Simulated scan of single mutants.
Amino acid sequence: MKRTHKLAIAFVVLLIILIKFGLGGNQDHIESNQSLTEDKVQVTNQKRISPADKIDLHAYSEYTKESFPKLYEVVGDDGLKKLFQHDMESAYKVAERSDCDRVIYSAYSEKSNYPSKIISFVRCQNGNIFDVSNENVEKR
């Protein structure tokens, strides 16, 4: 028998062995690895959602003297800026929580006692509402 025929027969035998024992036996392992990889991608995608991505672009409105004249009388220009900043920080704190799917509104709460205690209320799309005062976040 010629050398090329022997090599061809050896190749075919090797291919049959690989198919029967190597590749066929690993099919379940390959499918299992695919499933694990898909699960890792889902978990990774969930981790990539930052709190800022969970806040609606229109979740808060800027306070102005014209739109909030009574509040302006109490807090002044600097106070309106502090309240707006507090609303934004409060929305971010609530967006970090797992029990808030998406922040849709954050605003000054009348429970506040400016300047000693600023409270913002934050509403989530799933209906949860939170009162945020400094580091304290309370679910209503």
Rank of each mutant, 00 (worst) to 15 (best):
M1Q: 10
K2W: 08
T4P: 00
K6W: 10
I9R: 03
I9Q: 06
A10G: 15
A10P: 04
F11G: 13
V12S: 09
V12F: 13
I16G: 13
I16T: 14
I17R: 00
L18I: 09
L18R: 03
I19Q: 14
K20Q: 13
F21L: 13
F21E: 12
L23F: 14
L23R: 00
G25C: 02
G25R: 09
Q27G: 02
H29C: 01
Q34M: 11
Q34D: 11
T37F: 10
T37N: 11
E38H: 10
D39M: 09
T44A: 14
N45E: 15
N45C: 01
N45I: 06
K47Q: 14
R48F: 06
I49P: 03
S50Y: 10
S50F: 12
D53R: 10
I55P: 04
D56L: 07
H58E: 13
A59V: 07
E62A: 12
T64R: 01
K65S: 09
E66D: 15
S67Q: 12
F68H: 14
Y72I: 00
E73Q: 08
V74S: 01
V75F: 01
G76V: 00
D77T: 09
D77L: 06
G79K: 02
L80A: 02
L80G: 00
F84N: 11
Q85P: 00
H86R: 06
H86L: 07
D87T: 07
A91V: 10
A91P: 08
A91G: 15
Y92D: 08
K93M: 14
A95V: 07
A95P: 04
E96L: 11
E96A: 12
R97S: 08
R97F: 05
C100D: 09
R102Q: 14
V103W: 02
Y105D: 13
S109T: 06
S109P: 05
S112H: 04
S112Y: 02
S112C: 05
N113L: 10
Y114E: 06
S116W: 02
S116P: 01
S116Y: 08
K117F: 06
I118Y: 06
I119N: 07
V122R: 01
R123E: 15
R123T: 14
R123W: 06
Q125Y: 13
Q125A: 14
N126L: 05
N126K: 04
N126A: 08
F130T: 03
D131M: 11
D131N: 15
V132K: 06
N134D: 15
E135W: 06
E135M: 10
V137R: 02
E138R: 11
K139S: 11
R140Y: 13
